[in-house]
Amino acid sequence: MGRVTLQTVADRVGVSRMTVSNAFSRPDQLSAELRERVLAAAAELGYVGPDPAARALARGSAGAVGVLFTDSQGAFRDPIAAEFFAAVAETLAPTGLALSLLPATTTNGPRVAARDVPMDAALVYACAGDTEALDWLERRRLPLVFVDQAPTVAGASSVLLDDRPGARAAAQHLLDLGHRRIAILTTAHGQPRGVAPDAATAGVGYVSRERVEGWMSVLGPAGADVVAVNLDDNLEEDALAAARTALTLPDRPTAVLCFSDLVAWAVVRVADELGLRVPGDLSVIGYDDSPLARTVTPPLTTVRQDLDAKGRAAAHAIERAIDAQGSSAAEPEHVVVPTHLVVRGSTGPAPTAAGSSS
């Protein structure tokens, strides 16, 4: 048999090409019995449906949402990103929209994802604002929703965490427990790893800076002795290296504030390797309240973000941005998702306050 086309199926069933097309694209136009006969014939002939590009052209919709991510592999390696994307995908599923990951870095090859991949809109997730890929999305005039970063494109919507209050609550919790020698471990992609020159300006990227500024807004006025350690990314190997740096300093901290629960887990693990008790010798606070926070021993004190709520907010913002495309009266929306401190077993009184040596 030669190439199976829409006409091949139409001839087999004895209907028009439009009827076969409707069976795939507009099922409400056919009776259930007729649609079942068309789909059965298509399956028998090995016909999977009209060409997706042609269907997208006819509908004026690609049925896809691009996701611009600094490191597309990180979308799968970072548990927080993975949980967020799962919530977005689940929320969009009933609309027929699917996610398509786009690398933020472009190559000299013939295909540039941000320029060439069909999509109806895009999420810009924790991505540098000056990338060529983002420039292509802007030039395509696609509806954009920025997540975990302030919009850098006029008219774009955003979904942000209210990071600073959570960070402030975590820092105040340590001060209330008597800690004054505190390390902060945060991401600083592109900066030298290790001890940062100035804790107050540590961190790179919107989320990292928001958390550092929240911590320091409490620790600075309290006169705490703060050291910051930069890690390149929120990944296990980077977190372990930063934890070893912080816990082998000549004047070891009695508490550590971490960019994420993954980083906090690394600190607890390295503390155990060094024979330090958590929280007896060292208090540790994570960020995110991921499932990891509850499986670490002891369970992590952490700042909770509702990843499901953030994912749903991003998905709804994308839907509304697509619906409003071309409307001069449409206004971008900016959603702020709250955070709050969850106290568990990884924090306790500073060693000196407990009457023991550090």
Rank of each mutant, 00 (worst) to 15 (best):
R59K: 15
A62C: 08
A199G: 11
N234M: 04
T352W: 05
A93R: 15
A246K: 13
D251S: 11
R3F: 01
P298D: 01
L39E: 00
V207G: 02
D238G: 03
L219A: 09
P197V: 08
D238S: 13
D272Q: 13
L101H: 10
L45K: 05
A317T: 13
D71V: 11
A264Q: 09
L219K: 09
T8A: 07
G178F: 06
S358T: 15
T107F: 05
M216D: 03
R211L: 12
V303Y: 05
A239T: 10
T19F: 01
S358G: 14
P279F: 08
Y206G: 02
L97G: 05
A200S: 15
T5P: 01
E138W: 03
N22K: 04
L185C: 07
R115N: 06
P279S: 07
T95M: 01
R12D: 05
A315R: 02
V296G: 05
F84W: 13
D306P: 00
P50V: 06
G326S: 08
I285Y: 08
W265G: 07
L231Q: 14
R252D: 02
T106D: 12
G63E: 02
V147Q: 03
L262Y: 10
R244I: 12
R269N: 13
P52Y: 08
T95K: 03
I182H: 08
V15H: 01
T187I: 14
G286I: 13
Q191V: 01
P351K: 07
A329V: 14
T152A: 03
A264I: 13
V159G: 05
S72I: 15
L123D: 03
D130G: 09
A167S: 14
R35V: 11
V207R: 05
R269H: 15
A228E: 05
V13T: 04
M18G: 04
R3A: 07
A188L: 09
A87Y: 10
V195W: 02
M216E: 04
S290L: 11
S16W: 04
V336Y: 02
G355H: 13
P165H: 00
A170V: 03
P221Y: 08
P110F: 01
R252S: 04
P298M: 01
L45H: 01
L92W: 12
H189F: 12
S158Q: 02
L292S: 10
A242D: 04
A23P: 11
Q305A: 08
F24L: 05
T245I: 15
L262W: 10
T107G: 15
V218P: 03
D251I: 05
A239S: 15
S358D: 11
A43K: 13
E319M: 12
F76Y: 15
A222F: 12
L307D: 00
L137V: 04
S21Y: 09
A330N: 03
G205C: 12
G348I: 12
P197H: 07
G60N: 09
G74T: 10
G326I: 10
E213L: 13
L134K: 08
V117M: 14
L235D: 06
A53M: 07
R211A: 11
A98R: 15
R164D: 00
R17L: 06
A87R: 07
G63W: 04
Y206M: 01
E138C: 03
D162M: 00
Q149H: 08
P192C: 02
G280C: 02
L101R: 10
R139K: 15
P110K: 01
